[in-house]
């Protein structure tokens, strides 16, 4: 099988590699690059656990051929890591509000909320719920996730 040469920016760093043409971004990240913070929950875009940011926009990496990342910027949950070990306000808020239970949806929720707060620093509850509605959480009932986003928005402002 042929391979495709691929270059893109991943969590701030340029990466170049060859992939099989039918590789999905979720598998490239998890299996090829060891970034397992991105989860595969349904592989059809129905749970959102595989959400990554492509040029800052939330997308389901289980539905994205890896080739689509060519020349673009991919951000995964690992991309929020800072050299000094400190956490983003959203990460702090998810901990503080008890917004993570099993944690499987947590990276996707945090990334989606990151994109939301970038475009809309002071969202109301309805805006938060709409923006995050593509990620399913089976544990929390969502309330503490909404609260965490509100708390982080306040902390940032």
């Amino acid at each position: 099988m042929s391979t495709v040469e691929l270059s893109f920016k991943l969590n701030g760093r340029e990466v170049s590699l060859s992939v099989a043409p039918d590789t999905l971004l979720v598998d490239l990240l998890r299996e090829g690059l060891g970034l397992t913070g991105t989860k595969a929950g349904c592989r059809e875009g129905e749970c959102g656990a595989c959400t990554v940011l492509l040029d800052g926009t939330p997308m389901n990496s289980c539905l994205l051929p890896a080739v689509k990342a060519q020349g673009r910027e991919v951000t995964t949950i690992e991309g929020l890591e800072k050299t000094d070990g400190s956490l983003e306000p959203l990460q702090e808020a998810f901990m503080g509000e008890g917004a993570a239970q099993c944690g499987f949806c947590t990276p996707a929720m945090i990334l989606t909320a990151t994109a939301l707060l970038k475009n809309n620093p002071d969202p109301d509850e309805g805006e938060i719920r709409h923006a995050l509605s593509g990620v399913i959480c089976r544990c929390t009932g969502y309330r503490k996730i909404v609260q965490a986003v509100q708390t982080a928005a306040k902390a940032r402002s």
């Binding site: 060891g34 690992e78 956490l87 998810f94 901990m95 993570a100 945090i110």
Partner: peptide, 23 residues
């Protein structure tokens, strides 16, 4: 008291490993 979950730092950074995450 409502202490935070012990594994929260791993969850919010994506470092917590689930079964499928093991190579």
């Amino acid at each position: 008291t409502s202490i935070g979950r012990r594994d929260d730092p791993l969850k919010v950074t994506g470092k917590l490993k689930y079964g499928a995450d093991y190579s």
